[in-house]
Computed example of a mutant assay.
Amino acid sequence: MSPSLVIAGREIREGLRNRWVATATLILAALALALALVGSAPVGEVGTGRLTVTIVSLSSLSIYLLPLIALLLAFDTVVGEAERGTLLLMLAYPLSRWQIVAGKFLGHAAILSFATTVGFGSAALAIGFSAPVLPTSAEWWNFAGLIGASIGLGLAFVAVGTVISVTVRERTTAAGVAIVVWLFLVVLYDMGLLAALVATGGQGFLGQTLPAWLLANPADAYRLLTLAAFDGAGAIAGLEAVVADLPAVWPMLALLAWIAGPLAVAWTIFARREL
């Protein structure tokens, strides 16, 4: 078996042992079920399928919750092993450093993917059993796309957390940096962008390049993918006019870049790190 898969399996077992898997799954399932059962109450009668309304609600929730869960999973990927003294033991085996990074990423990716699929899938089942009118096949496909995009968002922040973990020397520092990164990318970035748009009236360079600014942030790329790309969801969220001409492939590529790019940076830093 590949050393990376062995390390991934170890991360999954640790996640089961310290209840990370159960906790993340229960949190996502509870919130997803609550939003699904509320139905269209938050937005009134919009003439849109209940599952589409749930996609909007879940995507808004995921932007805040999934990045935080992902960063908490990954912030001590390497620095935690170094503090416990097990990193030197791992490197004593015939393992390359990229295999360690890849294995830990795959393990965390599996935990997050399972939690997201089961958690959000429970909302879909609740709607399927309780809705007076069954969702259309297009709505089911959109919901499946929501789950896939949510996993992509989580993996992007797992990769960012891995960069943090290979850069700092103490777990407490890594935790603090992870919170700051979450705050900036999820909250402050959009606030700054909105303030700039208001100040310029949406005109000029910023207004013309707004989609690019949104794609530069993994949380906003996820928002564009889940709200603007799925039929009906963008109209509810008010983003349809902003990205009317933006192909859905661009947000997908942006999320993939936010996974591959930080992983490459993490491996480069870890390869040069002196223990």
Results as ranks from 00 to 15, higher is better:
Met1Thr: 05
Pro3Tyr: 06
Pro3Leu: 03
Leu5Val: 13
Arg10Phe: 09
Arg13Glu: 10
Arg13Gln: 03
Gly15Val: 09
Leu16Ile: 12
Arg17Val: 00
Asn18His: 08
Arg19Ala: 11
Trp20Gln: 05
Trp20Tyr: 11
Val21Thr: 08
Ala22Gln: 10
Ala22Gly: 13
Ala22Cys: 10
Ala24Lys: 00
Ala30Arg: 11
Ala30Phe: 15
Ala34Thr: 07
Leu35Ser: 11
Ala36Val: 15
Val38Gly: 03
Val38Asn: 02
Gly39Pro: 00
Ala41Glu: 15
Ala41Phe: 11
Val46Gln: 14
Gly47His: 07
Thr48Asn: 01
Thr52Gln: 07
Thr54Ala: 15
Ile55Met: 07
Ile55Asp: 13
Leu58Pro: 01
Ser59Glu: 01
Ser59Ala: 15
Ser60Trp: 10
Ser62Ala: 13
Leu65Pro: 01
Leu65Thr: 07
Leu66Asp: 03
Leu68Val: 01
Phe75Tyr: 15
Thr77Tyr: 03
Thr77Arg: 10
Glu81Arg: 04
Glu81Pro: 01
Ala82His: 11
Arg84Ile: 01
Gly85Ala: 02
Leu87Val: 00
Leu87Lys: 05
Met90Val: 04
Pro94Thr: 06
Pro94Asp: 06
Ser96Thr: 14
Arg97Pro: 00
Trp98Met: 02
Val101Lys: 14
Ala102Cys: 06
Phe105Ile: 08
Leu106Arg: 02
Gly107Pro: 03
His108Trp: 01
Ile111Met: 04
Ser113Trp: 03
Phe114Ser: 13
Phe114Pro: 07
Ala115Trp: 12
Ala115Pro: 08
Ala123Glu: 12
Gly128Trp: 13
Ala131Cys: 00
Ala131Met: 05
Leu134Gly: 08
Ser137Tyr: 05
Ala138Tyr: 02
Trp141Glu: 01
Asn142Ser: 13
Phe143Trp: 11
Gly145Trp: 08
Leu146Ser: 10
Gly148Gln: 04
Val163Ile: 02
Ile164Trp: 14
Ile164Pro: 06
Val168Ser: 03
Val168Tyr: 11
Arg169Met: 04
Glu170Gln: 14
Arg171Ala: 06
Thr172Phe: 05
Ala175Val: 05
Ala178Glu: 00
Ala178Tyr: 04
Ile179Tyr: 14
Ile179Thr: 15
Val180Pro: 10
Val180Asn: 01
Val180Lys: 11
Trp182Pro: 04
Tyr189Glu: 02
Met191Ala: 09
Met191Phe: 07
Met191Thr: 04
Met191Asn: 06
Gly192Tyr: 06
Leu194Cys: 00
Ala195Glu: 07
Ala195Trp: 01
Val198Asp: 06
Val198Ala: 12
Ala199Glu: 08
Gly202Ile: 10
Phe205Ser: 07
Phe205Met: 08
Leu206Glu: 10
Thr209Asp: 02
Pro211Tyr: 10
Asn217Cys: 02
Asp220Lys: 09
Asp220Gln: 15
Asp220Asn: 15
Arg223Asp: 13
Arg223Thr: 09
Leu224Val: 14
Thr226Cys: 07
Leu227Ile: 01
Ala228Asn: 15
Asp231Glu: 14
Gly232Lys: 04
Gly234Ala: 12
Ala235Leu: 12
Ala241Arg: 13
Ala244Trp: 01
Leu246Tyr: 03
Leu246Val: 10
Ala248Arg: 04
Ala248Trp: 14
Leu253Asn: 07
Leu253Tyr: 05
Ala254Gly: 06
Leu255Cys: 04
Ala257Leu: 14
Ala257Gly: 13
Trp258Ala: 00
Gly261Arg: 09
Gly261Cys: 11
Gly261Ile: 07
Thr268Val: 11
Thr268Tyr: 15
Glu274Lys: 06
Glu274Ile: 05
Glu274Pro: 02
